[in-house]
Design a protein around this nucleic acid. Structure first.
Length: 186
DNA sequence: CGTCTTTGACCGGCGC
DNA sequence: GCGCCGGTCAAAGACG
């Protein structure tokens, strides 16, 4: 199976609740690049910011104030036995949010995204944008929103695992880093 | 002309 | 039941 989920290794670094989600192995070359990039994110955001409580985000109430790991937040952990119209069981979802200090809202993470909605957010003067991965049958979604309290911070929330390999060159991670302000560690 | 964004409508869940 | 709210749909328009 060829799955290169961007969030697979990130989950392993999460200190929050136990997960039953299956994750796939990273090709070692990609893993290294991702790790380097994310370590950069951690340093950037945590060093530059006073800790922002999880309650600042629009998070699932059960998981407020849980598990801020650097710039990664285990936003949501959904498990229920409800069924939808088709009688399919809803599957457990995982969401991961990253707060990054950036001038641009859209960080190029290598995947192609189609915007499918935008909503005003309560207690936030900035709207939240909804994106879906354009790859066929890949249900990965992400939400992007800027914090009202600190306009320099962009919160990107990922939901789901990509069912396909990345579509662009991994070199784009350098662009991501270039888009962010880099602060020296204090 | 194909792809992507915009935006109001719509829907389901939840609290009262 | 009703209203609010977050999330999604889909038609129309913009853009390269």
């Amino acid at each position: 199976m060829e799955n290169y989920p961007i969030l697979a290794f990130l989950n392993s670094s999460s200190s929050s609740t136990a997960s039953s989600t299956n994750y796939y192995d990273f090709p070692s070359s990609l893993n290294m690049k991702y790790s380097n990039a994310v370590n950069g994110l951690y340093g950037t955001t945590t060093a530059a910011q006073p800790e922002v409580p999880a309650s600042e985000y629009n998070v699932h109430h059960d998981y407020k104030n849980k598990g801020i790991v650097g710039s990664e937040i285990d936003v949501e952990h959904i498990e229920n036995g409800k069924t939808n119209k088709q009688g399919e069981k809803k599957i457990r979802k995982h969401r991961y949010a990253f707060h990054t200090r950036s001038q641009v809202d859209i960080l190029d993470d290598g995947y192609r995204w189609r915007k499918y909605g935008q909503k005003a957010v309560k207690n936030n003067k900035f709207p939240r944008s909804y994106y879906r991965c354009t790859h066929e049958r890949c249900g990965v979604k992400k939400q992007v929103q800027r914090l009202s309290k600190d306009e320099g911070i962009v919160v990107t929330t990922y939901e789901g695992i990509h069912s396909h390999s990345i579509e662009k060159s991994m070199d784009n991670f350098e662009h991501i880093l270039n888009q962010m302000q880099i602060f020296p560690s204090l």
